[in-house]
């Protein structure tokens, strides 16, 4: 992350990291998680689930800060993040 000035507590703050879980067959491929991830962690995959929807996949795993917005936006209870 680029910063225009160095925060005073930068040494003490640990940026959390998240691990993304997907319940594949609940996904309806709406793309909300991919579109609104503030860190652009997710991308759409070319694969299909059993219902014929494209689920998301993680394009940039290192970027996830476990904010949980994807889980809040997901209309299907299909995605969530575990902080690691």
């Amino acid at each position: 992350m680029k910063l225009w000035r160095k925060p005073l507590d930068q040494d003490r703050v640990v940026v959390p990291h998240g691990e993304i879980h997907l319940i594949l067959e609940r996904c309806k491929g709406c793309q909300l998680c991919v579109t609104y991830c503030p860190r652009s962690v997710l991308e759409m995959s070319n694969l299909f689930n059993a219902k014929g929807y494209h689920p998301p996949q993680v394009g940039f795993p290192g970027r996830c800060v476990a904010c949980g917005l994807c889980a809040m936006l997901c209309p299907e209870f299909a995605i969530y993040v575990v902080e690691v």
């Binding site: 997907l22 319940i23 594949l24 995959s45 998301p56 996949q57 993680v58 394009g59 969530y80």
Partner: peptide, 9 residues
């Protein structure tokens, strides 16, 4: 085949 995702139930 989905990259970097953990599949859960």
């Amino acid at each position: 085949e989905l990259t970097n995702l953990l599949i859960s139930e």
